[in-house]
Amino acid sequence: MVRTYVLLVWTWTRAAAQYPLSFTLMTLGGMVLGGLDVAVIWVIFTNTTTLGGFGLSEVMFLYGAACLSFATADLLFGNVDRISQHIRAGTFDTMLIRPVSPFVQMATDRFVPYRAGRVVQGAVILAIALSHLDVPGDRVWMIPVMVLSGIVIFTAVWVLGSAVQFLLTDAPDLTNSLTSGGATLTQYPLSVYSADLVRGVTFVLPLAFVNWQPGLYVLGREDPSGLPYWLRFLSPAAAAAMALVAALAWRTGIRHYRSTGS
């Protein structure tokens, strides 16, 4: 499976490299586009010193962590959300006749390494934010745990949203509201949102475990919404649960696949 994944990634990368100019422009464009989010945070902080009770470095820490997780998930698996295009064009059929998991084929479909630009960007922002923060040495271990859990959670969200497209082939934008919506939500401290929304993204769709709960531990902050302290150690569990739900949804989707047209 991993071997096949790498093989397909390499093939698509070579296909993309046939257009070097486009490749460069898209890499740059992707980075500038990601930079816009940073610009927005910067504009906000030219007007205030705290947002939702968090300072610039803390917000950048949360943003960097979310961005790193999201961009990595997007790079590695984000293409699954093109499933409805493939269903409508009939090209999903050609994936089903190969002796390779359609998930691996979808995840690598038209893989473009320029998304790596945003991974680097997230990592750099996270590093800069950490250099401005005073994180005690015994809490640093949570950072890799947080990023890895975040990658799994975002991937699961993507797969979940893509599985829905087996049913709602005409409405791929719904997946977008889940994935991009999730990315936007986690860019800011959850303390800016209402208590109901925070409970929703803690206990229903566990986006709070991407960066917020483990981030509170790293930053050594009280939870402004007063949720229990032990929640901040649950990111790996939340990630595992999400991965399970997403895998089941994907399998159900494939089983209900109805090839269209001729």
């Binding site: 991009s180 949102y193 209402s194």
Partner: peptide, 18 residues
């Protein structure tokens, strides 16, 4: 429309905080 609404809600909270 659904996506726009979701983003409207998220942006509204950030602006409310500001």
């Amino acid at each position: 429309a659904f996506t726009n609404t979701v983003f409207g809600v998220l942006r509204a909270y950030v602006l409310i905080a500001l």
